[in-house]
């Protein structure tokens, strides 16, 4: 699924777009608020949906190879988090949709979850 399609489905705001990444293809998604769990099961290049907006979300993305993070339930990160994402070249989005609805809508549109991707 193209990133701009995800932005459209979630009616998301772009908080930080390093280059023009709207054409980037996203193959899977993962939703969680606990970063250790994200680190445990997320796969490289997945979309991360989270309600947590601390700088550690950006570090989690960097360390696990995630390029796009979408904050759910209308939560907005601090300036520091956005600046850090710019430095690490990570795209940040924000949607008013709660986690449940965000997962539901993307899933309904065909974006699969991390555990549905067979191990390479």
């Amino acid at each position: 699924m193209k990133l701009n399609q995800i932005i459209q489905i979630l009616d998301a705001e772009i908080l930080c777009n390093v280059k023009d990444e709207s054409n980037v293809n996203i193959t899977m998604a993962c939703g969680a608020d606990l970063m250790s769990d994200v680190l445990a099961f997320i796969k490289s290049e997945a979309l991360l949906l989270t309600g947590l907006t601390t700088p550690q979300v950006v570090y989690t993305a960097e360390n696990s190879g995630v390029n796009v993070v979408c904050f759910v339930r209308g939560k907005k990160p601090s300036r520091e988090t956005v600046d850090l994402a710019k430095e690490k070249k990570i795209v940040l989005l924000a949607t008013k949709s709660p986690m449940f609805e965000s997962c539901g809508k993307l899933s309904k549109n065909g974006l699969i979850g991390c555990s549905e991707v067979s191990k390479q």
């Binding site: 606990l34 601390t54 550690q56």
Partner: peptide, 10 residues
């Protein structure tokens, strides 16, 4: 803060 759920050491 999204940590301390007992997954760090594992």
């Amino acid at each position: 803060l999204g940590f301390g759920a007992g997954m760090g050491l594992p």
